[in-house]
Amino acid sequence: MMELVSLQDMAQTAVLGSSLGDNRPTYIYKVVLLGSTSVGKSSLAYRYVKNDFKESLPTVGCSFFTQTVQLETATIKLEIWDTAGQEKYHSVCHLYYRGAHAALLVYDLTNKETLNRAKQWLTELEKEFLPDEIVIALVGNKTDLADEREVAAEEGEEFARNRSLLFMETSAKSNHQVNDIFMAIGKVWDGSRIPHPLAKLVMLSALCSLSAQELLRREGEKAPVPSRGGGQRLDLGTRRGRMGCCRI
């Protein structure tokens, strides 16, 4: 399946968006942001998706964003689930991280307690996922508040190294490394995991079964039940569906 993929002129096809010429597969990656309340999860998501910053109020439940990323060998559609950090939503959070391909554990580097909370999230994720099922990144946010720093960069970094997590310090406010961290999680999938596409695709389509069904349905109500390998081309289907939306 991957042979179809590799040597296309990706820049061209991406712009034209032609469903015939673009042979790069489209993957849907579910990314979930977890962490204490007011560490900046929503701000990170907002910065990444809208490239803007504004003070926001606590998230209610969960906010959902999508963003499409063009990588050399694939198009990745990120589904970003920005969860609420408040404790009352804790018990529904598993709803949001279930089936995730990547998790950003966000802490506020001016508040040590939030790092501990991020570590608790890690423990929870480790219970739910096998190690190669999910990419986990530890993110220390608010580098713009350097004066109030309570957590040294080394501390976060060392913890991340010991537990094989990606690590980055960011600032949603001053737009520091926000794009980078999302790209980094995308690349882990693109690079290290794609050499075994078949196995991965089976897993992907199983994990995405909900969205896969949904997307296929969008393409046309008559679409058959998605086959196991169907995950690869889902987004192309959507694109066709969108272009033809007026005749539905």
Partner: peptide, 8 residues
């Protein structure tokens, strides 16, 4: 921003 999905 985005779409919210919340228990209520």
């Amino acid at each position: 921003e985005g779409e919210a999905w919340t228990p209520i």
